[in-house]
Computed example of a mutant assay.
Amino acid sequence: MIVVRNEKLRDLTRYAVLIALTTVMTMLIQIPTPGTKGYLNLGDMVVFLAAMILGKKGGFVVGGVGSALADLLSGYSYYAPITFVVKGLEGFFAGALLDTKLGQKTPIIPTAIGGVWMAIGYYIAEIFMYGGKAALASIPGNMVQGLFGAVVAVVLSVALKRTKVFNS
């Protein structure tokens, strides 16, 4: 019989729920971006929440796995490896910066930086996939998506902190 300590089970459950939620929120509303054959979505807010709750490691795992899984399930399998890296690093960067004094005081800055990284990361990958002009066309939508996710995640984190979700 395997015995799992309560903290490990709690963390494993949080990872699973946040990965699933990232996948669902990424797939729930998809706004196509014609130039790159990609789509805008709401998954970033969950990636940032994961970074806030689980730290940089959790941000990476939830962002990478949850978002790549959504690509696989949505028929964008060619994006899945790129998404794993870009969204994983989005969560990692946000989580790492949230651990700083500035991040603790003003969480919108680390999450916004994560969102900006996401737009830059996809831009770099899409240069090789579609060329510079098409890749450049994806930046505004990705920036809006990332910054919207950052704002919503910060607002939700305040509400979740009041419910003691972050403290348990």
Rank of each mutant, 00 (worst) to 15 (best):
Q30H: 07
S157V: 00
Y79I: 02
V17C: 06
Y15C: 00
L98I: 04
V85G: 13
T163F: 05
V86A: 13
T106L: 13
A137K: 05
V86E: 13
T36M: 05
A16W: 02
K105S: 15
G75R: 05
S77N: 10
T23M: 07
T33H: 06
K161H: 13
Y123W: 15
N142H: 14
L160F: 14
I139Y: 06
L136T: 13
I113E: 09
S157Y: 05
G66M: 05
V86P: 15
A70D: 10
L18F: 11
V154A: 04
Q104Y: 07
V86C: 13
A125C: 09
F92S: 01
P107V: 00
V165Y: 14
F60K: 01
G103H: 04
F60P: 01
G115H: 08
E90S: 12
L28C: 11
P107M: 01
G63L: 01
A50H: 11
N142S: 14
V152Y: 07
V3M: 04
N167G: 14
L42P: 03
K161T: 04
I120C: 10
M1P: 12
I120E: 07
P81T: 05
D11S: 12
L147V: 02
K57M: 01
V24Y: 02
Y76Q: 04
I19D: 00
A80D: 09
M118N: 14
G146C: 08
G141D: 06
L54N: 12
P81Q: 06
I31Y: 07
A125I: 02
K57S: 04
